[in-house]
Amino acid sequence: MIDFMLLFFLVIFAIAAISMKDLLSAVMIFSAYSLIMALVWMRMNAVDVAFTEAAVGAGITTVLLIAALSRTKRREENSPQSEITNSKSIQRRLLLSLITVIVTGAMLVYSTIDMPDFGDPDAPANLHVAARYIEKSYEETGVVNFVTAVLASYRGYDTLGEVVVIFTAGVGVVLLLRRRKEQ
């Protein structure tokens, strides 16, 4: 029941965020969306992911987006496209794409019926390396939290890559936005 409510709110927030013309409100709704998402992760017992979602998604991303908004305008401008959409051919094309999206979505929902239950120990995803991480990670890495063991040890290269990605993002921002003194 709680899960259903959370997912319901996620959909509401997602629709509200894209339909909002006031960008500051949209950023706030995104923050609420991330907070709900963190609760969903908690419900799935993924505490590390929930922690990251709450700190990064709901917290720092909101601040950085507001900082970015202070550099631009607060309101989304009406694009000239809204006048074109009244013409017949465009409306037909929009209807066609709506049908495509609904059919694809229905097919995706239909395919979930065949998927294993959440947390099923016999699911293909749980049969591969998960058992070894759970049973052996303390012996092999000496770390109790096996999420950390996977991130830092078994998948150490990926984590190094992530850190370099963050560093590169910082370098990019500095190169694009920083003013040199002599200019």
Partner: peptide
């Protein structure tokens, strides 16, 4: 292994904190 993982976590923490501070300073 424990100390190595501890060391890289500290490295990750330094980079993430410093990069986010830099991005905030540069945009705001």
């Amino acid at each position: 292994s424990q100390l190595g993982i501890y060391g890289i976590e500290i490295g990750i923490g330094i980079t993430v904190a410093a990069v986010l501070i830099t991005i905030f300073f540069e945009t705001a």
